[in-house]
């Protein structure tokens, strides 16, 4: 699918939000929800950066690092993939302080969600690297490149193309996962919605706006990733 239909969907979502925001049943909720959406976006962006860094580190460590580091990477992936993000959030926020380590809610949110998504991402990285033909390694060796140079200059740039679509999925999972942070006192979009819902009982307008808000953000991610993919494919001299 091209970018155009997605851009149209994004435009329609924005138009719907704009139109509803002008409506008197909806207008009062807008300032609070926009503030909440800003928190959601901050957690998503910071979490995504951490997720990519953790995924590259763990994914490459599983493939190329010496045994102890490899095991560490496996432990990380299994620990964060095998337990729920909600439990991880609670554990970091409510249990860790019992051991004398207190981390603020925003940092906990970014750590838990970023590392959780990073664990899935590590497998994406590993799979994409393994999908690069062995011939490419040998061509690098025959040119006397070092292992590190082959990974960094030959294998990874090719693997990135295959990584982009699954990363698009993971970023959207991350965005939706941020709604969990309302349970550790952060005033994200979902938290604001629930708060206003309890005081005003205007469930219809509030959650319609929230629905469109999440859709707007996830479409933005999808379009961004699609553009990146197109660029990466062009970088291989193929037609996107």
């Amino acid at each position: 699918m091209g970018v155009t239909p997605l851009a149209i969907m994004l435009g329609l979502t924005a138009a719907a939000l704009w139109w509803l925001a002008g409506h008197e049943d909806y207008r009062p909720f807008m300032p609070g929800l926009v503030e909440g959406a800003a928190v959601t976006m901050r957690i998503t962006v910071a979490g995504a950066i951490l997720a990519v860094a953790a995924a590259l580190t763990a994914g490459l460590a599983r493939l190329y690092a010496p045994a102890p580091l490899r095991w560490l990477a496996v432990t990380y992936v299994e620990l964060f993939r095998g337990t729920s993000a909600l439990v991880q959030l609670f554990w970091l926020f409510f249990v860790l302080p019992q051991f004398g380590v207190t981390i603020d809610a925003f940092t906990v949110a970014v750590l838990a969600l970023g590392l959780n998504v990073g664990a899935y991402g590590a497998e994406v990285v590993r799979g994409a690297v393994l999908a690069v033909p062995l011939h490419q390694w040998e061509a690098g060796l025959a040119l006397n490149l070092s292992r590190r140079q082959i990974v960094a200059r030959i294998i990874l740039p090719q693997a990135v193309v295959a990584m982009i679509p699954p990363w698009g999925n993971l970023f959207i999972e991350l965005l939706k996962g941020t709604s969990l942070v309302s349970l550790i006192t952060l005033a994200d979009l979902t938290f604001r919605a629930q708060q206003m819902n309890q005081t005003t009982m205007q469930t219809g307008p509030i959650f319609t706006l929230v629905l469109l808000g999440y859709l707007f953000m996830s479409l933005t991610i999808t379009i961004g990733m699609r553009l990146m993919e197109r660029r990466a494919i062009r970088g291989l001299g193929r037609r996107a």
Partner: peptide, 10 residues
Amino acid sequence: VFQSFNLFPH
């Protein structure tokens, strides 16, 4: 030089 060229596609 290899049978299947093995140029770097990127």
